[in-house]
């Protein structure tokens, strides 16, 4: 079989099993007109395709599709995701991907801006508190405004000594 025959028969099969562009059909017909071997093969392949198509249809048992849908609905209900996961799924769909990214970026920018614009204390920090405050970041004090005050009270309690209490302690053995 020449390459031309192979190509012609492949196109023939394409036509027998579905559709083929008109130009290709013309080329196949032209080839078959000159090649007896391919003509014979074409007849047999056509008969095979017809036989295969003829025995293609199936029937399903009565009531199969309603039962199928009921079973599928049950399985889908079991498969249904909790609310949070569904929201995540909704946000994750390609349609919302850009919107989600833009909204997230805007929220991050807004939070950073709010943190930067927070008014700072006018007085300089007490040098005795610097060491303790070294452990406390600016973000912590911004998000927990009372933290700085708590630190001050704690620090005062550690450094200021009641003179009467001190005298009593010195007298005791």
């Amino acid at each position: 079989m020449t390459m031309r025959c192979q190509e012609a028969l492949e196109r023939l099969v394409e036509g027998l099993t579905g559709s083929v562009p008109p130009a290709d059909r013309e080329a196949v017909i032209a080839h078959l007109a000159t090649c007896a071997r391919c003509r014979q093969e074409a007849v047999e392949l056509e008969a095979t395709a017809a036989r295969l198509r003829e025995s293609a249809s199936f029937t399903v048992p009565p009531g199969f599709w309603p039962a199928f849908m009921n079973r599928l609905t049950d399985r889908m209900a079991q498969d249904r995701l909790p609310l949070l996961a569904r929201v995540r799924r909704w946000l994750g769909s390609p349609r919302h991907a850009w919107a989600t990214a833009v909204v997230t970026a805007m929220v991050v920018i807004a939070l950073s801006a709010a943190a930067r614009l927070q008014p700072r204390s006018a007085t300089s920090p007490d040098p005795s508190l610097v060491r303790a405050r070294g452990l406390v970041t600016e973000t912590m004090t911004v998000t927990l405004p009372s933290l700085a005050e708590m630190l001050d009270i704690w620090r005062a309690g550690m450094t200021e000594v009641d003179p009467h209490l001190d005298a009593l302690q010195r007298r005791s053995p």
Binding site: Q6, L9, E10, V13, E14, L16, T17, E44, L45, E46, A47, T48, A49, A50, R51, L52
Partner: peptide
């Protein structure tokens, strides 16, 4: 597709299935 159809033609012919 071409190879499959030829194979099916041969198998059906062996089984005596005609057009």
């Amino acid at each position: 597709m071409f190879a499959a159809l030829r194979k099916l033609r041969r198998v059906l012919a062996e089984q005596g299935v005609r057009a």
